[in-house]
Design a protein around this nucleic acid. Structure first.
Lengths: 167, 167
DNA sequence: TTGCTCCTCACGTCACGTGAGGTGGC
DNA sequence: TTGCTCCTCACGTCACGTGAGGTGGC
């Protein structure tokens, strides 16, 4: 109510946009995208000609840049102006980064899998022992290194070397 | 003997050098290294000034390039002339490559570890079952999913998902 | 002396960014 | 009309490669 009145009187009211933003949707025309990326509009056209960026197009053929496009442009801007790369270098670096990021996720998957495997292993061994214990009555001496007196729940220990830094 | 005579008469004799070559040892002076890398000697001096390559020096301050130096120069040559990178790009790519290669070895270590873990797991389970079988005489029904009738050697099966491409 | 080394300086070329100039639709 | 879009062309700048020019030691 109060807000409505403020707006009616022309007061400045901050509005929050709660809609989920699709980072891939083309929303900025070239002048806006250029300003957001701190670049000359003509530079964006040049980058497109070189295949470094591919904005969407409106039905009238106007370029429409997405959030992600702008992000990419800013990264390119950093590489060229701060690090001094030329466009061939930018292409090479972007390609390698994709590779590095793929390896990162593979590495993460492997780490997770290893942890899981360790857990499964301990569980399986414990399960085998438990089900045997339920069915049998051991007799004689316990001279096997792998067995303990019935009733003691310590799990079988398996030597597990962990990989270097598992972070 | 025959060889010796050939050499004495000035004939051309191919000689095999069996000594182990230290790839890090400075052995080529600048004109030779430049030719091997297909570059201008002055370019090598420039690259050194930019920190892209650091040849050894003789006591007389003459640059001495190693095998590895030449390899590196050839890689740089490829990047600049074939891919069109500038020197900033070359630096960036070389740095990232070191990173990628570190990740490669980590990944390889993880894969190996996972295989090892699977093997250990199966072995351990089999060992537990074997040692129990040696001590007990099972009786009653075999209604546990984890056990099989005594005397059948099939190992306990453990569900193992393998990572995507393990090559 | 010749042919290498060392160095610095300077110039030519090329890539890249950007401005100009002309068009067209809201 | 104004201010945007589209496009192409051309110029200024800068990085880089290389040649020149002068030195010094085997």
């Amino acid at each position: 109510m109060a807000k409505r009145n403020d707006m009616a009187r022309g007061k400045r009211v901050t509005r929050r946009i709660d809609a989920t933003i699709d980072g891939e949707r083309g929303v900025f025309m070239i002048s806006v995208a250029a300003e957001l990326a701190d670049m000359h509009p003509q530079t964006l056209r040049m980058y497109e000609a070189r295949g470094l960026i591919t904005p969407k197009r409106s039905p009238k053929k106007t370029r429409l840049y997405s959030q992600n496009d702008v992000e990419r442009l800013r990264r390119i801007q950093r590489m060229t102006s701060e690090e001094g790369l030329n466009l061939a270098g930018v292409e090479a670096v972007l390609k390698m980064e994709a590779q590095v990021s793929r390896m990162h996720s593979e590495l993460e998957r492997m780490r997770k899998r290893t942890r899981e495997l360790e857990r499964e292993m301990n569980e399986e061994v414990a399960r085998v022992r438990r089900s045997l214990k339920a069915e049998i009555v051991p007799y004689g001496a316990y001279d096997s290194a792998d067995l303990m007196p019935a009733g003691r729940g310590r799990p079988v220990r398996i030597p597990v070397r962990r990989p270097g830094k598992s972070g």
